[in-house]
């Protein structure tokens, strides 16, 4: 049974992730009054990348790209197997760390600055991600997804502020505007493509596919707040992702200074307020 679940996850997740990326691109295009690419364009892109020559600056860059992919897959599988949420977050960290190390291994100032910015992004979102998990713990008494799913309340009702904070850092995690400064879907930023600037061909394809897995994981995470009702959860995920696209299109790219301030001060503040409230509600 587990083997089947794992296989299904590994095979289905990139399809779903790719389709989400395709829908994202179409909606983004429409928001900019463009026709936009076909729905399957992300797949065409990746297939094209896979067919290209792998050109690199250093020997082990591609290694990190593959590591990034593999750890993202492992993290998603762990999520689907309903393991401990904190552990899943740490595995996710491992995935991001490989991306950062890949960027730092190349001797390019642009990718290295991108790596530092990504690290700052980790600094910004990690406390909030962990806080949301801890908030869930306060409500359900467990860090394990299998236990969280058993609860018959909707977590969102207890953790609305944490959900807001979570969607806020989701923008950082998905590297969408206004927080797309470590790398972006467009080369038009001061770091060109930041983290991924020295990647090309199949290794870049690996990173793209890893993004799909990551997107699926993060959206499932968002769905966890509505886990007791599947339809509500799917609707919430859709609304959540639409909001991300909307924000992507109505905001300028901010700087990491502003991001750090906004996540650590108001972001963590509302997270803490929510945590204190559920702590008092369930533990005092």
């Amino acid at each position: 049974m587990n083997i089947q679940i794992i296989a299904a996850t590994i095979l289905l997740a990139p399809v779903i992730g790719g389709l989400i990326a395709g829908i994202d691109r179409i909606i983004t295009a429409r928001m900019q009054h463009r026709v936009g690419p076909p729905l399957l364009q992300p797949f065409y892109d990746v297939l094209k990348l896979l067919g290209k020559e792998n050109i690199a600056v250093t020997n082990d860059q591609s290694l990190y790209a593959v590591l990034y992919l593999v750890f993202n897959v492992i993290t998603l599988v762990m999520f689907v197997l309903q393991m401990d949420l904190l552990l899943i977050l740490f595995m996710l960290l491992l995935a991001v760390a490989s991306l950062v190390l890949g960027a730092m291994s190349a001797n390019s100032p642009f990718s290295k600055i991108g790596a530092q910015r990504e690290l700052i992004a980790i600094l910004a979102y990690e406390p909030i991600l962990i806080s949301s998990v801890v908030g869930m713990y306060f409500v359900t008494g467990s860090f394990s997804i299998s236990r969280i799913l058993q609860i018959d309340r909707m977590l969102f009702i207890d953790l609305p502020l944490l959900f807001i904070a979570f969607t806020y850092v989701l923008t950082i995690k998905l590297r969408k505007s206004p927080f797309d400064f470590s790398t972006s879907h467009h080369g038009h930023q001061e770091l060109v493509k930041g983290l991924t600037i020295e990647y090309s061909g199949p290794s870049l394809a690996m990173i793209e596919i890893a993004h799909w897995y990551e997107t699926v994981l993060l959206l499932l995470f968002a769905g966890l707040f509505f886990a007791n009702n599947l339809y509500v959860a799917v609707a919430a995920i859709a609304i959540c992702y639409f909001a991300e696209i909307l924000v992507d299109n109505i905001a300028a790219r901010l700087t990491w200074q502003i991001m750090l301030k906004s996540t650590w001060i108001p972001g963590l503040l509302i997270a803490v307020v929510n945590m204190v409230w559920v702590y008092i509600k369930y533990h005092v």
């Binding site: 900019q32 463009r34 400064f181 299109n249 905001a251 300028a252």
Partner: peptide, 10 residues
């Protein structure tokens, strides 16, 4: 330059 693609398009 400040990463506002939709405004750029507009």
């Amino acid at each position: 330059a400040f990463g506002f693609e939709s405004l750029f398009m507009q």
